[in-house]
């Protein structure tokens, strides 16, 4: 049995409000575990404690109580971050650096040697599709490009865990889809992903497991399919069905004691339609 990628045990974080007696409980006795190879979605409305939880996992914030570990290494230790790549929400990098220089810089921070750093930077730029923009300053990048260079940066030391905060916020559907495909690619390579988002649809498409945070507490957690399937219902989708056939099915259903809950034309989802129309799905 391997160690969990992330283990959060009874973590509480209280922020005092300066000059007031009040305190804000951002995370309240939270415990959860992410197994290696999973894509875990942490969901919740704004202010539910998602970002604080992530910062605790990354050692940027010290918990008031409790303990977090990354592959068995305490989060407060610098060494724990050798295994993690982090993409912050709306990442901003040093605007005066080019894409290539940015990856070089983060490579240096991770202690990569010069030759390895060069190779890795080229490789990652190719992976996220930014070869063409390698020598442009980040200041001129679009939102989607920033998000992609952010992913590349997070991967620079080949971490076993990725922590992504709203990876598709503010990105257009085509870009969003590319990022989603990249994440699925990481999953295929065995990288564990912790994803924070409030875009439920996206989480639904890629996550194996989800946890829902509300006011600092984990109110629901489990496998995605378990959480959202309605056990006593079945969907049938027919093509070229005649009205007679439909009437016959309805009659058979009623005769068997089951109930026909609804009958409708399935709709293409808007995202797919948008991508078809703009040709972004190629």
């Amino acid at each position: 049995m391997s160690e969990p990628a992330i283990s959060i045990q009874h973590v509480t974080k209280v922020f005092p409000i300066p000059f007031k007696r009040e305190r804000v409980v951002a995370v309240d006795d939270l415990s959860l575990t992410v197994e290696p190879g999973q894509v875990y979605g942490l969901l919740g409305p704004n202010g539910s404690g998602k970002s604080t939880t992530m910062k605790i996992v990354l050692g940027l914030v010290t918990p008031t109580a409790g303990k977090t570990e990354i592959f068995g290494c305490d989060s407060t230790r610098v060494a724990s971050r050798e295994q993690v790549g982090f993409l912050p929400e709306n990442p901003y990098f040093y605007k005066f650096l080019t894409g290539f220089e940015t990856l070089q810089f983060f490579g240096k921070l991770c202690g990569l040697r010069a030759k390895k750093r060069d190779e890795r930077a080229r490789e990652l730029l190719a992976l996220v599709g930014l070869e063409g923009a390698a020598d442009r300053r980040i200041g001129g990048y679009s939102k989607g490009m920033l998000q992609r260079i952010g992913l590349a940066q997070a991967l620079v030391q080949e971490p076993r865990l990725l922590v992504l905060d709203e990876p598709t916020a503010g990105v257009d559907p085509a870009g969003s889809r590319e990022i989603r495909d990249l994440i699925l690619g990481f999953k295929a390579r065995g990288i564990t992903v912790l994803l924070c988002s409030h875009l439920l649809e996206q989480v639904q498409e890629i996550c194996d497991r989800v946890g829902i945070l509300h006011r600092g507490k984990l109110i629901s957690e489990g496998r995605l399919t378990d959480l959202i399937s309605i056990e006593n219902q079945t969907e049938l989708i027919l093509e070229n069905a005649s009205p007679e056939l439909l009437a016959e099915i309805a009659a058979t259903t009623a005769a068997s004691g089951a109930r026909l809950v609804g009958q409708r034309k399935p709709q293409q989802n808007l995202e797919r339609y948008f991508l078809d129309v703009t040709g972004g799905n190629q």
């Binding site: 982090f86 952010g150 030391q157």
Partner: peptide, 14 residues
Amino acid sequence: EDRTLYTVLAKPVS
């Protein structure tokens, strides 16, 4: 403000 600090400190940098 630019959140560059987070990306740097999320690397193994004390």
